[in-house]
């Protein structure tokens, strides 16, 4: 019982129960931790009612970074050696958990990203053009900076080992943490690996990134990546 599945959820009352059941079915040995990020709907209540998940209710909405970090803090304090992050909106089918976990468990990588682009079969992910272009640019920049091909930088389907947990519970990027986390971990000499996982198109609820906000998003990511390059590593390996 040393695997913690972190499920950050903000107003996912329609999806959260399915996600929990799905994770429980695919990873019965893991503890499921739902971080209810100050939802205004019944997300926390529904998650607790399943009795399959431990639920942290944050008093107000922190954003994805703050929510995930709360999960890392819980993992650190309760001695979990492995963390898997699965988004609460249901776009990460739990069958992918075993796929992102494998390189962690056999010591091949310190952090694993589940990439929808490395997975061949299943439904093709479709998204807004502006967003797709943004993803390509971020991916390109990340590939140059990290010296490693990153195909799905915005994927939140990830697995982490204990060393990474020790770092991320203390320092975690705030607003759009997925790409920044890659730079941050690379800077601190952690090994990152991408594996293909199936992903679903959102069924219920709406994505937190709308096309209007995507320019703001792209600018913010660009800035945080740039600053991320300039930062000194926190730990020496």
């Amino acid at each position: 019982m040393d695997i913690l599945v972190i499920v950050p959820a903000y107003n996912e009352g329609q999806n959260i129960e399915t996600v929990i059941n799905d994770v429980k079915k695919e990873a019965p040995q893991a503890e499921i931790m739902v971080i209810n990020d100050g939802s205004s709907d019944q997300t926390g209540f529904i998650a607790e009612a399943t009795q399959k998940a431990t639920v942290i209710n944050l008093p107000y909405n922190l954003g994805i970074g703050g929510a995930v970090q709360a999960g890392f803090k819980y993992a650190k304090r309760n001695g979990f050696q492995t963390v898997v992050r699965v988004d609460g909106d249901g776009q990460h089918p739990a069958q992918g958990i075993a796929m992102v976990l494998e390189p962690i468990l056999n010591g091949e990588a310190d952090m694993v990203i589940g990439s929808r682009f490395l997975y061949s079969s299943g439904e093709k992910p479709r998204s807004v053009l502006a967003r797709r272009i943004g993803q390509k640019i971020i991916g390109f920049v990340l590939t140059i900076i990290s010296g490693q091909k990153i195909t799905d930088a915005s994927s939140g389907f990830r697995a982490y080992n204990e060393e990474v947990i020790n770092l991320l519970n203390k320092y975690y990027p705030a607003d759009y943490p997925e790409p920044e986390e890659i730079i941050f971990l690379k800077k601190n000499n952690f090994r990152i690996k991408e594996v293909g996982v199936p992903m679903k198109i959102r069924t219920k609820g709406s994505s937190s990134i709308t096309s209007v906000r995507s320019i703001y998003y792209a600018l913010k990511v660009a800035l945080s990546l740039f600053i991320g390059i300039l930062r000194n590593p926190i730990i020496k390996k």
Binding site: I56, L58, Q69, K73
Partner: peptide, 13 residues
């Protein structure tokens, strides 16, 4: 503030 927020969540649990 963020740290306090997370701490409240963890303490609540």
């Amino acid at each position: 503030n963020k740290d306090l927020n997370q701490e409240i969540g963890l303490l609540d649990l």
